[in-house]
Design a protein around this nucleic acid. Structure first.
Length: 279
DNA sequence: TGCCAGGATGATG
DNA sequence: CATCATCATGGC
């Protein structure tokens, strides 16, 4: 079995990486904890088992994949140092304290794009269910028994009928459309990584089925473009309500994406509207 | 039954 | 340019 080639590694300290917060803050959909609180996930066709033990985050992976996973978890930068700038306004500090340990995952751009198309007007359990069956139906089976995320070429060749078992409704058309745009070269995900964020955003935004929200999520989680701030409605309300007059998200500079994640996580864990005081 | 889920689109003022 | 019905589906 392939488990013979796997070894236990220390991936990070628990203070710099909270598995629960990171995996359950709404940025990713393919990580699940088993009965022991051990998380299992597949990214870019690679499997990882990861858990916390005595203040350390341990993982079970192919040794040669460790650099890949450290990049995935963005462990090259110190989030605790970055968030020390989040002192004002108080609401931002509160969110940052609450979300300490969250990492902005450097997800696979293709997987992130399709995942967030599926996420539109949807809830997390169902998003996970749809993505899970998408992989089971059309992804490659891995030695561990789980499935890789299906490639663009596979999805581009499907019909709406093929997709029917996923029961993802009107998102089917969007998924197929995006897949075909990637295969035709109309949307070059790899090239986007080398473009200024506004240009990359404009390019994905041109694809039918990808609006401001999905494009924004793609920029942050798919391209790890941290200098954008969200534009969705209730986040706007949060800013208006809890941030000082004339607060300009631009002052957060390259940390805007991290601030966004902290705010989102806090408000979501506190039932959105209740915490925000908006209807 | 009705409403919501981190939306997007196209038509309409 | 802001608003709005519509889209498909499952959960509560």
């Amino acid at each position: 079995m392939q488990s013979e080639t796997k070894t236990e590694y220390v991936l990070a300290s628990a203070s710099e990486l909270s598995l629960k917060k990171t995996f359950e803050c709404g940025q990713c959909f393919r990580w699940d904890a088993d009965a022991n609180g051990v998380y299992h996930g597949i990214v870019s066709g690679k499997a990882l088992t990861v858990w916390e033990d005595n203040g350390r985050i341990l993982c079970d992976a192919d040794g040669e994949d460790i650099p890949f996973w450290r990049t995935y978890f963005d462990l090259g930068v110190d989030y605790n140092e970055m968030s020390q700038f989040f002192t004002e306004p108080p609401y931002l500090k509160m969110c940052a304290d609450f979300g300490r340990g969250i990492r902005i995952l450097r997800q696979d751009p293709w997987e992130a794009l399709i995942s967030f198309i599926i996420s539109q007007c949807n809830n997390i359990p169902r998003i996970k269910k749809i993505i899970s069956s998408l992989c089971a139906y059309f992804g490659e089976a891995l030695p561990c028994g789980l499935f890789a995320f299906p490639s663009a070429s596979v999805l581009a060749g499907l019909s709406e009928k093929d997709m029917a078992p996923l029961r993802c409704g009107y998102r089917t058309e969007y998924i197929l459309n995006a897949s075909r745009a990637v295969i035709s070269g109309e949307l070059d995900l790899h090239a986007l990584t080398r473009l200024p964020s506004e240009e990359a955003f404009a390019q994905v935004r041109r694809i039918r089925g990808i609006g401001d929200k999905v494009a924004n999520c793609f920029m942050l989680y798919g391209l790890h473009q941290m200098d954008r701030f969200p534009i969705d409605v209730w986040m706007k309300r949060a800013l208006e309500r809890h941030f000082p007059n004339n607060f300009n998200p631009a002052v957060l500079g390259p940390y805007a994406g991290l601030a966004q994640q902290y705010i989102f996580y806090y408000t979501r864990m506190n039932e959105h509207s209740d915490a925000l005081g908006c209807s």
